[in-house]
Every structure is written in structure tokens, then in C-alpha cells.
Simulated assay, not measured.
Amino acid sequence: MNGLEGKRVLITAGGSGIGACFARRFHAAGAKVAICDMDAEALVETAGALPGVISVAANVTQPDEMQVLFDQLDSHWGGVDMLCANAGTGGPAGAIEDLSLEDWRACLSANLDGAFLACGWAARHMKEQGNGSMLLTSSTAGLWGYPMRSPYATAKWGVIGLMKTLASELGPYGIRVNALCPGAVEGPRMERVITREAEAHGLDPEELRKRYVTGVAMKTWVTADDLADTALFLASDASSKVSGQALAVDGHTESLVG
């Protein structure tokens, strides 16, 4: 992928899953990579395999912890070229009347507050540079209603609202902002989601797993590398006019589990 050598890339929730895959792929492409994660053990494991990567244990919902990360990057890099605001949580599964306000707020905070803090920091640098790219991780749940997952769907729609607004706000400064909308991504996180949803729906987990594929036109799951392919494209010069887009990488979702 052209134009990635030496680019400064910050990835939130980069210790495992999609974020760790992003870190590996950008590192392999020659980018300078920084990752943060609240899971210190996962962070150490991922960073240990990527020489030169900056890693900071931080909860994206905590401004003081994120400021430690930003201060390090200000010192080491003095700017940033690509932000992957990837942190989030699946939140609780259940009927709206059975969910607690505490769980609702925790889900919105993890998915939105972290993106807000990271985008605000990145915007200051990118405005001074006159260029940059931001990629916010939403979900196909940010494009559809999602029964039994109201906090998650609301948060991911909010991510797209933030992306659309920032694309307009920052476009005059040469900054591109897009959202990535993954479908069902293979891995431990999705298995945890299936367990929670199966319980909420009163279904066998294997039956629910089949339903996820049935609702996709290509009848397939998504891999983290599928998503990384899009992230690398959006960091490159090849996407210089792509902004304000909610890009679904999902094999074309036709329905969500309901």
C-alpha cells in the first residue's frame, strides 16, 4: 500500500482483536505505530512482537489516562497522520426494560467518549499539518436497528454521527474522516457476544452463530485482516478524496439477528 512508510498511526484498543491486527499490519507496512489498551497484559504481548511500537495502558474513557498517552506522542512524534479510534464495547444484551442505566452509560462511554477524546487531540495536530486521516470504528449495528442490543446500536449510530460531523468540520483543513462498519468478526470477542445474545434470545449459541451468516449476502464471517485492508487503504494516498463515508466491511448485511 503506497504512502504508509513513516506515517504516524495511533490505534486505540490496540492490545487485541481488530486493533492488534491493525497494529501488526501498519507496522509491517513501515508505519510508526502507537497503541493503547486498558488490558495491560494484552498490550504487552502485542507491543512485544512489534519493535519500536509505543504502548500505553489507558482506559479511553478516562481523560487523565488518555492525556498520558497524548503527552508521550506529543514528545515522540509531535503530530499524527492516522488515527484509528477503535475502542469500544459490545455492552449488555437484553430487552430495554431489563437493562440498567449504569450498563447503558458504560456502553455509550466506551464507544463514544474515547473517540471524542482521541479525535480532539488528533484534530489539533492535523489542523496544524494541513492533512490527516481519522477512522472511527462503528459497526453494521450503526446502520441498522439491533433488537436486544439497544445501548450498542445507539452508541455505534453515534459514532457515525460524530464521523459525519467531523468530516464536515475538518475537511477544509485537508483532514479526512471515515467510519468502519464491521459485520460479525471472527474471534473471541464475537464468541462472547454470541453467548450473551443467545441467553437474551433464549437460543442455542450454535443456532445464533448460523443466523449471523444467514443474514449476510456473501454467507461469510469477516476477519480482522479484512478490516485492516480497509484501514490501510484509508491511511494511504490512494484514498485522498474518500471522506465522510460509513464503509461496511461485512459481506453485505441484509438483516441483523432479531
Rank of each mutant, 00 (worst) to 15 (best):
R124E: 10
R196V: 06
P205R: 04
P147C: 09
G158S: 10
E186R: 13
V213C: 09
G114N: 08
G202S: 06
R192G: 15
W157D: 00
A179H: 06
R209H: 09
Q129K: 14
L108K: 06
L117R: 04
M126S: 11
M126R: 05
L136Q: 00
P182C: 08
C181P: 08
L112S: 08
G161S: 01
R124W: 00
L117Q: 07
G171E: 09
F116K: 07
A106Q: 10
R209A: 11
A106W: 01
C181N: 13
V222Q: 07
G158E: 12
R192V: 10
G174W: 11
E169P: 05
G183L: 03
E197M: 09
T195W: 03
C107E: 09
G120D: 09
K156P: 03
W144Y: 15
R192N: 09
S150F: 06
G145S: 14
K156S: 06
N111E: 06
R196N: 15
T137W: 00
A155Y: 05
G171L: 03
A179P: 09
L166K: 06
S139P: 00
M126Y: 00
E102A: 14
L112W: 06
A198L: 01
A184S: 12
P172H: 11
R211G: 14
T220H: 08
D225E: 15
A115R: 01
G161A: 05
G132N: 05
V222S: 10
L117V: 07
Y146C: 15
A106M: 11
G174I: 11
D113P: 07
E206C: 07
D113R: 10
L180D: 08
W121P: 02
L112G: 13
T195G: 10
G142N: 08
Y173P: 07
G120V: 01
D113S: 13
R105D: 14
W121C: 04
G158D: 10
L203C: 10
E206R: 15
R124T: 10
A115I: 14
Y212N: 01
V222E: 02
A110M: 13
G187L: 11
K156L: 03
D113Y: 05
N178H: 04
K164Q: 12
M190I: 12
E186N: 12
K164C: 00
K219T: 05
M163R: 04
T140Y: 02
N111I: 07
I175M: 14
A198Q: 01
Y212F: 13
N131K: 14
T223Q: 10
E128Q: 15
T214K: 14
L112Y: 01
A198S: 14
T223F: 01
